Amino acid sequence: MKLVVGLGNPGAKYAATRHNVGFWVVDEVARRLGSECSREKWKSHAALVRVGAERVILCKPQTFMNNSGEAARAVFDYFSELSADDVIAIYDDMDFPVGDLRLREKGSAGGHNGVKSLIAHLGTESFARVRVGIGRPEQKSAVISYVLSPFPAAERPAMDETVNHAAEAVLFALQNSFTLAMNRFNGT
């Protein structure tokens, strides 16, 4: 069993914002598998799907970004067979330009509050990550308004392509391994 958790904020107000690219990727994975995250369970909008023989939970926490770990913990409490090695977290990352995609097997939160929450509730930094570059605002004081704003029209095609690429990476990792996905999708 695997848990694919996209980080974002619930509600129409945040749906198109930079901070919600994790939700976009999970939605694209679900779409490609003929599903949607319509089940309201585990403090999330979720879907139970199969990728080959593997059971997969697709999860979009509805706890707001800074409390994303609460939803992941709820899934863990329900499915006792899950471990941190079974998690793929997908989220926005300001450390990379718009459209960059980076996969890592583990690491720190890097200042991302949603990832901090996952680490706190899972009790480890050892879970896979798909980091989607959203760029950085010119002024450090503008970070919150930046991540909670939509992409400008000029950047949206690059983001749509990156979301598709990230969904391909997640599906490849589920069918093969995360290590192979890193080798194939990092730097492309």
Rank of each mutant, 00 (worst) to 15 (best):
M1E: 08
G8L: 14
P10Q: 09
P10G: 03
A12W: 09
A16Y: 15
T17P: 15
N20A: 13
V21H: 05
G22P: 07
W24G: 03
V26A: 06
E28A: 13
E28G: 12
R31C: 00
E36V: 01
E40Y: 06
E40V: 10
K43D: 10
A46E: 15
L48S: 15
R50T: 10
G52P: 09
G52W: 05
E54Q: 13
E54F: 05
R55C: 06
R55W: 13
I57T: 15
L58N: 13
P61S: 02
Q62R: 07
Q62K: 09
M65K: 05
N66I: 07
A71Q: 11
A71C: 10
A72R: 05
R73Y: 07
V75M: 13
L82T: 04
S83R: 15
S83Y: 14
D85R: 15
V87A: 07
I88F: 02
A89C: 12
M94L: 05
D95I: 00
V98P: 06
G99Y: 07
D100N: 08
D100Q: 08
D100C: 04
R102C: 02
L103I: 05
G107A: 00
G107D: 03
G107K: 07
A109C: 02
G110L: 01
V115E: 04
K116F: 01
L118R: 11
L122A: 08
G123C: 11
F127L: 11
R129V: 00
R129G: 00
G133C: 04
I134Y: 09
I134G: 06
I134E: 06
P137G: 01
S141I: 06
A142G: 01
V143Y: 06
V143K: 02
S145L: 03
V147P: 08
F151N: 10
A154I: 12
R156P: 09
A158C: 05
T162F: 03
N164A: 13
A166S: 14
A166T: 14
E168T: 02
A169S: 09
V170T: 15
V170A: 13
F172P: 04
F172S: 03
Q175V: 00
N176E: 06
N176R: 08
N176M: 00
A181N: 07
A181K: 01
G187H: 10
